[in-house]
């Protein structure tokens, strides 16, 4: 059945969907953490490119 989710509104119960913690949200935008993730993502991309060009 089609479900239309309403946007979260203050003072309402949280939606029944997995939500990131404040720590996760901070990590997603932290320059230091993301510099490290950028290096890791590039390594992951290299692995995928090697697989794609076998």
């Amino acid at each position: 059945m089609t479900v239309v989710k309403k946007p979260a509104v203050p003072n309402q119960p949280p939606p029944l969907v997995t939500q990131p913690t404040r720590r996760s949200l901070r990590r997603r935008q932290s320059v230091l953490v993301q510099l490290w993730r950028f290096l890791m993502l590039n390594l992951r991309m290299v692995r995928m490119i090697r697989k794609a060009h076998r």
């Binding site: 479900v3 239309v4 989710k5 309403k6 946007p7 979260a8 969907v17 997995t18 939500q19």
Partner: peptide, 16 residues
């Protein structure tokens, strides 16, 4: 689960 989480976090409604 991840897509629904991203949309809910941003207040985006959806019809699938």
């Amino acid at each position: 689960f991840f897509a629904e989480s991203l949309f809910t976090e941003r207040g985006i409604e959806w019809v699938k």
